[in-house]
Design a protein around this nucleic acid. Structure first.
Length: 645
RNA sequence: GCUACUGUGGCUCAGGGGUAGAGCAGCUCACUCGUAAUGAGCAGGUCGUGAGUUCAAUUCUCACCAGUAGCUCCA
């Protein structure tokens, strides 16, 4: 007998060799029906896995990540089987489950067309109906290589060859299909209920652009048709919030072919929001001891050679001139660091001067590859709330904490603090050429940073290879409506550039020392942050950020004069207001103002003129009744002052 | 940059080898109206750009430009 500890902490005795599925059945038939996999001592296993020793067992359903991944991973195997049946010459690469579905990569002679996806989906349905059992078996490494060579699967062979000698590999067989796979999987293809192929796209083998581009098919799967439908409806709903669509509809920004890719034009309303954010940031930073700088947007190549950008970031820069024939080559700045560092270097600093906090509303230029641009999220010119803090090693932790405190304050004010995740981005020790500085310094500063993050109790995920070329980063990540993640805010600890650019301070003992530098942004770059806000609020910005805060809607001509009087009063108090004097019915004017997502509509007719009032309509609560003009002014000013969400 | 798809008036879209249509928006007129679209009329497009095929191209082919999704890259 063996002892199995279940999720609720209870322990039961079972016959040695009992399967995960049998344990589920012993608990309840209902659980056995929905169980998809089992987590045995922390490792996810098939339902058919036999328990030989005392262990903890957590039965996983679709609501558990492990269960969901097993379910969708099985769907990806069904996808590869269907593709193989229809296109026997394709070569299989990899096919994992991902957050909201699964994919499989194939090498094909010709690319998949949308009609191919429909055919493949049909074949998948057939395989599900066939209810093929997934059988797990293992082979030693050498035999596994031979097996895949005979099957003519070069990508699988390559994957196996990368594993150490003596390794034993697991395979899953379902009907006519066998795939190399660690598992876990569902017991049979019939367990899959609702599947859908979403799209196909190119993807590089092993994620490197140096490799061949394969064909990737994305799909998703749910235990119920209704859940799949719900998911698809949710995706469509999310797309309506897409900043790239909504931002143009709301006249926040536009693009024109003649100006070029990644160069959006901020229209008056979009520019107004950015101005509000920018003033807010600059004032708040001043309160927190930042010193404002204004530095040039371009510099001679000499500066970038000194900072290392020329060696490590040249592809990302707009370079003016040709080194081969021009005496002077300039480049637009991709980052502010070397410029602000020159301000620091303009005089000799004592340890008594530190910390020094420089802030700048800084416009940067990056020559992104043509396929990268996306609305306001990925652009070639952007303006960032940039800053560099120069401090002693002893001050590093406090300064870092101060930065995180400022960032959290910014995010809370915008209402986005719960929509982000934290990423600790480290260097890649296997790719040292990408970075400046010594290996031991990298490890040292990363340890320091991890300690600070732990002290701050930040819930972060460590990722290798995402650091800047000069130091590790704390990245604050946000997902857009398509589920794609971008860095919205970043804090970087830099030990290397200060040394490289010979920044020093004089310490107590009259020795010259290199300071630490924290590179940071408080609110991110304004374009990207605006994009996030558009999607967060679906264009219905909090009143303090709304480009137009109130729209006055006179009923008919004779109310126009009073409407302008009210508008003047509001403007005088700093409220952004418009008057709609078009010859249209009130219902029409309200509809338009509502679609423009204006927080307050003020209807003015005979009654309001007599009582010196306004009939207030809120975009979210509808008709609020008539109040005096003064009362409305007090109410909206309070809302703006408190930056109410 | 790579893969696939897309590009028709300001916007959303229909059409299709014989030089174009709808709705909304715009303008004009009438209506002077109380909380999500009043009616009528008018105007607006060398069908992304360039080249090729053809008697004829917006439609077919190629290149370029721009957009969308994914990959790579990245704030």
């Amino acid at each position: 007998m063996i002892k199995i500890t279940l999720k609720d902490g209870s322990t039961q005795e079972y016959q040695k060799g009992i399967s995960v599925k049998e344990v589920a059945e012993s608990i309840s038939a209902g659980l056995a029906r929905v169980a998809l996999a089992g987590e045995v001592d922390g490792k996810v296993k098939d339902l058919g896995y036999k328990l030989e020793n005392d262990c903890t067992l957590n039965l996983l359903t679709f609501s558990d990540e492990g269960g969901r991944f097993a379910y969708r991973h099985t769907a990806s195997h069904v996808l590869s089987q269907a593709v193989k049946r229809l296109f026997p010459n394709v070569k299989l690469a990899i096919g994992p489950a991902i957050d909201n579905g699964f994919y499989y990569d194939f090498e094909t002679e010709k690319n998949f067309l949308p009609e191919d996806l429909a055919k493949i989906e049909k074949e998948m349905e057939k395989i599900i109906k066939e209810d093929l059992t997934l059988e797990r078996f293992t082979l030693p490494r050498d035999e596994a290589i031979k097996f895949m060579e005979e099957k003519g699967e070069p990508y699988k062979v390559e994957l196996i060859r990368d594993l150490p000698e003596g390794e034993v590999l697991s395979f899953y067989k379902q009907g006519d299909s066998v795939d190399l796979c660690a598992g876990p999987h569902l017991p049979s293809t019939g367990k899959l209920k609702a599947i859908k192929l979403m799209s196909s796209a190119g993807a590089y083998w092993r994620g490197s652009e140096k490799n061949k581009m394969l064909q990737r098919i994305y799909g998703t799967a749910f235990p119920k048709r209704s859940e799949l439908d719900e998911y698809i409806t949710k995706l469509e709903e999310a797309k309506k919030r897409d900043h790239n669509k909504l931002g143009r509809e709301l006249e926040l920004f536009t693009t024109v072919e003649e100006i070029g890719q990644g160069l959006p034009l901020l229209m008056p309303k979009g520019a107004k929001i950015i101005q509000i954010l920018q003033r807010f940031v600059e004032d708040e930073e001043e309160r927190r001891g930042y010193l404002l700088t204004k530095t040039p947007m371009l510099a001679k190549s000499d500066l970038y050679k000194l900072s290392g950008h020329w060696q490590h970031y040249k592809d990302g820069m707009f370079i003016l001139g040709d080194e081969a024939k021009d005496e002077e080559v300039m480049a637009l700045r991709p980052m502010t660091c070397p410029f602000q560092f020159m301000i620091y270097k303009a005089k000799l600093h004592s340890y008594r001067d530190l910390p020094i906090r420089y802030g700048e509303t800084s416009t940067l230029f990056r020559n992104e590859a043509s396929g990268e641009m996306h609305g306001l999220i990925r652009v070639r010119q952007f303006t960032i709330s940039e800053g560099h803090l120069v401090c002693t090693p002893e001050q590093l932790e406090d300064e870092f904490k101060g930065v995180v405190d400022l960032i959290k304050f910014m995010m809370e004010t915008l209402g986005i603090q719960d929509d982000v995740t934290y990423r600790f981005s480290k260097w890649d020790p296997n790719n040292k050429d990408k970075y400046i500085g010594k290996a031991e310094d990298w490890e040292d500063v990363q340890d320091k940073m991890r300690t600070i993050l732990d002290h701050l109790k930040i819930d972060y995920k460590e990722v290798v290879g995402e650091a800047a070329f000069y130091g590790p980063k704390l990245d604050i990540q946000s997902k857009n409506v398509h589920g794609k993640e971008d860095t919205i805010i970043t804090v970087q600890v830099d030990f290397a550039l200060a040394e490289r650019m010979d920044m020093v301070y004089v310490d107590k003992n009259n020795d010259k020392k290199h300071p630490f530098v924290i590179h940071r942004t408080s609110i991110g770059c304004y374009e990207r942050t605006l994009a996030m806000l558009i999607e967060k609020y679906a264009g219905a910005f909090p009143t303090w950020l709304s480009p137009v805060q109130a729209k006055i809607l006179p009923l008919v001509d004779k109310h126009h004069d009073f409407a302008y009087q009210v508008a003047a009063m509001l403007k005088d108090r700093g409220v952004r207001v418009e008057v709609d004097t078009r010859n249209e019915k009130i219902g029409y004017k309200i509809r338009e103002a509502q679609l423009e997502k204006i927080p307050y509509m003020l209807v003015i007719g005979d009654k309001e003129m007599e009582s010196n009032g306004v009939a207030v309509r809120s975009r979210k609560d509808g008709d609020l009744g008539t109040v005096s003009v003064q009362e409305f002014v007090d109410k909206i000013l309070e809302e703006i002052r408190t930056k109410a969400k």
